[in-house]
Simulated scan of single mutants.
Amino acid sequence: MGASPGTLIADPSAKQSALNLTLISPDACEFINNASLDDVAAACEQWPLIWLDCVGLADIALIEEIGNIFSLHTLALEDVVNAGQRPKAEFFDDHAFFVLSMIDDAKSARYEQISFFFGENFVVTFQEREGDPFEPVRQRIRISNPSRLRHRKADYLAYALIDAVVDSYFPIVDATGDKVDAIENELLNAQPQPRPKEHIGELHGLRRATNLLKRTLWPLRDALTTLIRSDAAFISAETKVYLNDTLDHAIRLTETVESQRETMIGLIEMQLSLSQARTNEIIGVLTIVSAIFIPLTFLAGIWGMNFDHMPELKSAYGYPAALGFMALVAVALVVIFKRRKWL
């Protein structure tokens, strides 16, 4: 707060930084874990394409040195260390900057920011912590000829990595859809004893998760569109065709999430309606019972008054006659309620 533009300030909770270096040529590839800046500088001179992955954002000096090696813009680096950026694409003279959120742990649906820099012959990624969906890309790099990732430039590698991030959302979205379908089936085939509190709580939790997905995916479409429409010389027309496919995936994810959100809202409203209908049914039964007993209570009150000259007070058949009359009144009320379809 108050620092000059381009000043890098590490988050106190940021993880310690580590460098993973992937070196690529048409005929060979090499992976260096826990690489040093000397390894990076040497690779820039010897390999036609390199991918530097910085995991952890605590080491500001290291990040600044990476920026110096690849001539990365300081304002973009500032966005790297300030996690929580809205997905966006920005372009500079010889490189592009692309930032989005990714799921680094599918089981817990844990999100983190990942930032991409790419130019003519390099891709630099910055992750907040370990865990990413890039293993299929690494496997494709390891595969010998033919391999597009070995023969094409940095823009195609950047596309492959961005596409892996976007595709990693599909299992989460599909799992949410399965849960929603299961709740819907249970509600539509509800047993006499539904579980309204459990359903409502679960649906609200799913809706919160879906809202987070929507906030993450919606601006991603605009960022990808900006990337596709750019006239940067280091992004080829062929790569833009592949990026269009990634954009289609992002649009499909957004539409699916929005559909799930609307379904959950409908299910919540339906659950509330079912609960209200159940309450009304119970109140109706209690009202009918009360309506039957009101005249009986009235008769019992009349005959229970201890006056000396009450009719039939000393009759031998007075008690059974009173019970029989009250039973007749109760039966008559039940018949009347059934004819009126109140029961």
Rank of each mutant, 00 (worst) to 15 (best):
R229Y: 00
K88Y: 08
V81W: 04
S36N: 05
K197N: 12
P12C: 02
A316V: 07
F98K: 04
Q193M: 02
L343A: 10
I336F: 14
I336M: 13
Y156L: 06
D174F: 07
E198K: 07
I60F: 02
G284A: 15
L227M: 15
A154I: 01
N306C: 08
K88E: 12
G301D: 10
R110Q: 15
I283Q: 14
R278N: 13
D53M: 03
A18E: 14
F234H: 03
F307L: 15
F126N: 02
E198R: 05
S144P: 01
T216S: 15
G119C: 01
V81M: 06
W47E: 01
Y111T: 14
M1I: 09
F170K: 09
V81A: 11
D245F: 00
L57W: 04
G177L: 06
V173E: 08
M102A: 14
I32D: 06
L149S: 11
V173F: 07
R195H: 10
L333E: 12
F325S: 14
R86M: 08
L224W: 04
N20C: 11
L52C: 13
F134D: 07
R148Q: 08
A190T: 02
T176S: 12
A182H: 09
D181F: 02
W47N: 03
E65K: 07
D174H: 07
I265H: 09
T7P: 04
